[in-house]
Structure formats: structure tokens, C-alpha cells
Design a binder for these strands. Structure first.
Lengths: 403, 403
DNA sequence: GAAAGTTCGTCAAGACTCTTGACGCAGTTT
DNA sequence: AAACTGCGTCAAGAGTCTTGACGAACTTTC
């Protein structure tokens, strides 16, 4: 099925090493006797394994005292060396690129980004990302080989097999770029390429409004409308990696024609340009989104009306989606999500009205991690953490720490 | 993460046993040297493991000659004893109950069913299923303990945690029955309860029109409209087990009101009663579905029109669904699927028109396994096969064969 | 038809890993 | 201070796998 579990005696040893590492990653500081109990091996065996891992620098001995709540001698607590191996996320948006470094326990090590001119080409963007990554690694005193993988976000749909970015809007820098290959070459590290919006969903699922939820829909409401589906705890991509394109779900069969070829697409009703167009008549051409949101929140009737309409139409789509996927929670992100309850309220109402009673008991909550390229970079790191089949094995393959 | 892979020396042995069993289940007859190569252990070790498994009756030595295509001595080929462990499926429909017995290599051992009066209550239905199962076991010379699990289909949605059947239509026998508990007690075996339609999807995914497809939508078009989602190779259930209720997806926001509370539900346009109502004016009250389908297939224009309309409306829903889930294939089953191309053609057209170009490259094919309770019973067995985390381990837990 | 070549299955000896039981140590309770 | 509890390590022993060798069975070549 998976990796060979047994095999020779040597692999038994390796397997036990990995189990010790996995326990330390998952549960933090533990002492040898506790490891022995949980791994169901003798304390002696744990001792020999731990001493080897200590020698290789993969784990370290913690000197904190564990607030002894039991009798007897307190054990020497061990933890995975946070410097032994890390994961990275890198998110390319239209504005720029952000890079995030995390340890295996999902704690931030470093995070940084830069803005880029809209005209910047993909090669230059990749270069910028690579140099930020290198800078973060240097400042943390880490070697390249200690990066288990990089989760990279780019705009647009990504073909699952080939890693090529498809076209969503014409004129965007990444169209038809073989992103997986180019990034792999530029970074010299294992790379997973994903859509920005999906990565935001992955980030919310691990650190944000979707913590601990197995079936989660992240709904990104911005100039485009995309989504990230976390189903049974894992990111769902679809056959060619195009799952979650909610913007072109049709909300009225004979609605306005959309550049995509379909009619009545949701994005024509609820995308940022459409919403701005609906707000302008009441607020004037000069007002920016920020202020329109503020005035709507303060009670502006015209603004409320616009967001009620948007929330209702989105809620109708979400109701159908609840019938189909029965998610436990829907996390709403993207620029428009800053409208808050004036948008989420009507969404909840529409779901309550249109979804089956069995599935309508779904949380609809705003995203927690904010906006911008950083969120997707968090998601990239989270994706590597969740999709590396065995983090412990990956860590165990690290030969040792040089420093 | 999963089962402890290493542990003591004893568990190393067990782990190697399980790997040998897993190879034999997955690849059929193999000889010892081949097992040794694939399991990456020495031939000596395989020999000792195999001799123990032979003694316990879990594997048998095949006497067929393997058509030696290589030099050298031919090995004695081994195979899992088909009598060592089996899985069962049991499908309760409105008409009756069907039971299916399969070995671990997914080969049919026995299959049988009976019809039941529509007024029959759940307890009696369970009793009928249990006695058929017992009869099949007896005729195959199998003990109860050799059944790894039973996948049971019942009509209506099933709550994931509690196993209680929810209400879809009033007056159906299973409403509010705690199916999981009652079946478990009656059968005295591990039970997984699922919705009929989902099990049909699972059956098509393993043996029918969805073989080898990781992302599959089974679309059941009958008096109700349900679906089974196979996502990344596994049955998707949703947060409370209600995923896939496509019948009450709304196709027009201000359509006719539906008993479910929503408006414009798909089932009001494409469910069997609605289709029959649309066909009657042209074919008369006395004609049955069978004949109407035959005459439509023979070129009846009025019939064609009805199925074109149904296919188009369904296709519009499926197009949205393709945008959301990007499935690789859609398998259409249920009674109405017998209409064939006159229904599937318009579905394909609608998908081509309304879905994004990235996702519209989806196969739309008819179900292959036919209709009736038997298909769901096949699916029940398939579900146990696919959801038993480690079949080899389950088999290895069998103490030995009595006969 | 015999000899050489290839591969299978098994045996005995040796290597490696884990466990058992004992001991000293560190901290808590009496 | 003494007793108690639990941690970490050591030495001896048990268990599993591997190595290298052998005879057996089948194919190819002379």
C-alpha cells in the first residue's frame, strides 16, 4: 500500500526512528519514557534511538522543567530541532510575492515579501521570490537542503499533471507558463504549485477560521471568485486541478453573457468590478472601496442594499453547494469579505432558505488571516506540511545538521 | 500517522506477514521469490512467513503452472485462500433486499435477494437480509467470523455519526431508524451503513463504468435524484453524511415550490414523476415507461423533446458541478438512464455550453451494472473493500480456518 | 540426449534489533 | 531523613532477518 512498513531489521530501526520523530512533531516536548509508552517499545530502545538522533542533530534536549504534576523523577524532555527541517510557502500575486518559512510544528520562522510592478514577467517574479527565500534562509541560518518543500501560489488555474498555468483572464503574466518546472529549476527544491485562492483556503484551514474542520469551503470573493475545497481534511483539486471555479457557476440560465462563454455567471453579479459598479451610483466615482465599506457599515442604506443583493445571490449558489457537498463550515475571504455581516448575513439567510434542512446547519464565517499575498504564502507552507506523506521520514532522511 | 509500522520484533514479523498478504491480494498468484523481491526481504524470510500462513490456512499453494516465460525453475505459486475472509454487501430498497458476498480480490462468491411487500417494516427487512446472508454463508461453507464487514444500503440520507436514517420522503419505512445499531445487532458483524445511491456509485466505480477513475460523479436519476461522489478515489460523505443531494439543487430561483421548502428544485423537472407527467400527454395514460422509452428510442418526436428538456436541465446543473468539482467522468444511472443517448446527448451539450473550457472535457457515460437492488449490494461489498484501512491486517487477524 | 545455465526453495551460521530485569538517580511524599 | 515513585542506562538474552551455500527443477545449447 504505502511505504514498505517492515522489511529488514535496518528498516525496523528506521521505522522506529520515524515514529519517535513523528511523536515529537505532533506532541512537542516528551521525555524518553513517555515516548516508549506511546511508541510501544522499551525505554532502552528509545534511549538508543534518541541518542542517535541527538548525535545527528535532529532532536535536542530541552532544559525547561515540565511542571512536574506526577511523583517521581522528571524526565529529560526532548523536542525536534526546529532548525533541522523547514517548509516554505511562496505566493505570487499581481502585486508582488511573499515568502513564508515555517518549522515542522507549523510555527513561523520568518516571513517577508515585496511588491512588484504589474508589468513584471514570470521569470523576474520567480527570481524575486527565490532571492527572498534565500535571504530568509540565510537570516535563519538554514541550509537549502533543510527545506522539505515549497508550496507556491500563482494566479490562475494550474493543470494537475503538467503544472502549466491556464488562462483565466487575458493578459495576465502567468498564462501558459510551465510554473512547476520553472520554479523547480529556479529554486532547486521540491515544489508544489497551486492556485492563490486555494492556498488561502489551506491557510485558513490550518491556522485561521477553519481550524479543526474536516470539510471546509473557502470562498474567495475578490475581482475573481474562486474557492478552495478542503474535503475530508485534504485539499481537493479535481481531475485536472480546476476544481472550485465558482466564479463561472451560472446563477441565471439566460443572464448576461460572460467572456467565458457561459451566461449569467456569478462573477458578473458578485465580482469586485460588478459590485463597484453597483456602488458607484450612490457613492460617486471618487470614493474608494475602503470608504464605501465604512459608510455601509455605518448604516448607509444604498450600500446595504448592494451587499444584501450580492450576499443573496452568493448564498443561493452556496445553498446548492451545501446540498452537493454538505460542508461543515464556509470561510469567506477576499477583498469583499471586509464588508462583514452586511454581506454574510444575507448569505446565511439564502442558505437557510434554499438548502435542505440536513445540510443547512453550516457555519458561515469571515476569514481570520487577513488579506494580501502573505496569507497564500502561509497556505503554501501549510500545504507542504499536510501533503508530505510522512514528515518524520522526510526529516529522518536529512543527513544531519552542519551548524 | 497510521498503524504503528515498527515496534517490537514481533510486530516486525506481523508487518512482514501483512505485506506478503497484501501483495497476494493485490497481484494474485505469486511465488516466494517474487514475493521476496517485491517485499524487499530475503527469500528465506518469505519462506518462513509463507509456511506459517499455509499452516493457518490463510494462503494456499496453487498447482497451476504459470506458463513459464522465463528460464529456470518455476516457483510454486501462492494465493490468498478465497475462503479465508470475505466481505458482504446488503442493499435494502423499497422493493426488497439483496445480499452479495465477495472475496478480498473483489470476485463474486454468491449473490441473492428477495422482494418484500412495500408495507414491510425495518425490523422485518433486516431479518430478511440477515437470513439471506446466513444462507449464502452456509452455502459457501463460511463462518460468520470470516466476514470482515457488511456494507449496507438503505433509502434516505444517513447521519454520519449516529447512523440514523433521516427523512427524505414521508412514509418511508426507514425514517428515523437507527440503522447502524440495529443492523449491527441483527448481523453481529461490523457494519457500514450508506445511502442506496451512493452504493450504486461505489459499485460503478469499482466494477462498472467508473473503473480506474479517481474523480467520479455517479448520478442516479429515478423518482428521487441522488448522487455518489468519488473524490480522489474515496467516497465523499460530507460533514453529516448528506453530500450529493442533487435533487434539491435549485435550477430556477423563482420556480415551483417544492415540499423541501426550496423553489425550482431539479427533481421537479427531472425526477421520474415529473418526466412521466411530461410524457403522458403524448403517449396516453396506459403506456408504461418501458414502452415510452422504446418508442422514443425508435424516433418518437414528442418523447425526444421531453428527454432533451430533461437532459438539458440536468446538464445545466452538471455544468455548474463540473466547474465546482472538475470530475473526470459522470456515470448516469437510475431508471431514467435507460433512455440512453436521447438523454445523455443533451446533457453533454449543456455541459459543453455552460462549463468552463478547462473542466468541460468530462466523460458522460451510462451506468454498466444495470438497475435494481443488486447493484447497491455490490457497492456495499466494494465499500468494505475500499474502506477497510488494511485488508491484509484484517485477514491476518483471522485466527485460522476451521474447515 | 547430455551438459550448461538459470532460477527456486531451503538450511545453517551469523548479524542486528528489541526486550527483560537490574541498578543508580532525581524528585515527591511521609 | 526515610520511603516511594518514576526516569535513564547497562548487561544478558530472545527473536527476526540476512548471507552464502546447496540441491532441485526447468530451459537452452551442443
Amino acid at each position: 500500500m504505502s511505504r514498505k512498513p517492515g522489511g529488514s531489521l535496518r528498516s525496523l530501526r528506521r521505522s522506529n526512528q520515524e515514529q519517535v520523530i513523528a511523536l515529537l512533531i505532533a506532541q512537542g516536548p516528551l521525555h524518553r519514557a513517555e515516548l516508549a509508552r506511546q511508541a510501544d517499545v522499551s525505554r532502552t530502545t528509545v534511549s538508543t534511538i534518541v541518542s542517535e538522533l541527538l548525535a545527528r542533530g535532529l532532536v535536542t534536549e530541552s532544559d525547561e522543567q515540565p511542571d512536574g504534576d506526577l511523583d517521581g523523577r522528571a524526565g529529560n524532555r526532548l523536542l525536534v530541532n526546529p532548525r533541522a527541517a523547514v517548509v516554505a510557502g511562496m505566493n505570487h500575486t499581481f502585486d508582488g510575492v511573499w515568502v513564508h518559512l515555517s518549522d515542522l510544528a507549523a510555527r513561523e520562522i520568518a516571513s517577508s515579501g515585496t511588491t512588484l510592478d504589474p508589468g513584471t514577467g514570470p521569470a523576474e517574479r520567480i527570481e524575486a521570490g527565490a532571492s527572498i527565500l534565500q535571504r530568509l534562509l540565510d537570516s535563519a541560518g538554514l541550509e537549502r537542503q533543510q527545506v522539505i518543500g515549497v508550496g507556491v501560489g500563482v494566479p490562475g488555474p494550474i493543470h494537475r499533471e503538467t503544472g502549466v498555468v491556464g488562462v483565466s483572464l487575458p493578459g495576465q503574466p502567468w498564462s501558459h507558463v510551465h510554473a512547476a518546472d520553472e520554479l523547480q529549476q529556479a529554486l532547486g527544491l521540491p515544489v508544489v504549485v497551486e492556485n492563490n485562492t486555494r492556498l488561502e483556503g489551506v491557510a485558513e484551514a490550518r491556522w485561521g477560521a477553519g481550524r479543526g474542520v474536516a470539510n471546509l469551503l473557502y470562498f474567495g470573493l475578490s475581482s475573481g471568485i474562486g474557492s478552495g475545497l478542503i474535503l475530508d481534511g485534504r485539499l481537493y483539486r479535481g481531475a485536472v486541478g480546476a476544481a472550485g471555479e465558482l466564479g463561472h457557476v451560472s446563477v441565471s440560465v439566460d443572464g448576461a453573457p460572460c467572456p467565458c462563454g457561459n451566461r449569467g455567471c456569478l462573477v458578473l453579479r458578485a465580482g469586485l468590478p460588478a459590485v463597484l459598479a453597483a456602488l458607484r451610483p450612490s457613492f460617486g466615482e471618487e470614493t474608494d472601496l475602503e470608504e464605501m465599506l465604512a459608510r455601509t457599515a455605518a448604516g448607509d442604506r444604498a450600500g446595504e442594499k448592494v451587499f444584501t443583493d450580492v450576499g443573496t445571490v452568493v448564498g443561493q449558489v452556496l445553498a446548492n453547494l451545501c446540498n452537493l457537498l454538505n460542508p461543515e463550515r464556509i470561510v469567506v475571504g477576499g477583498e469583499l469579505s471586509r464588508a462583514g455581516e452586511v454581506l454574510l448575513g444575507p448569505m446565511r439567510d439564502a442558505i437557510r432558505r434554499h438548502a435542505l434542512s440536513l445540510v443547512r446547519d453550516v457555519d458561515v464565517v469571515p476569514a481570520e488571516l487577513g488579506l494580501g499575498a502573505r496569507v497564500g504564502a502561509l497556505g503554501g507552507a501549510a500545504l507542504v506540511l499536510s501533503e508530505t506523506p510522512d514528515l518524520a521520514a522526510a526529516l529522518n532522511r536529512m543527513s544531519g545538521i552542519t551548524a
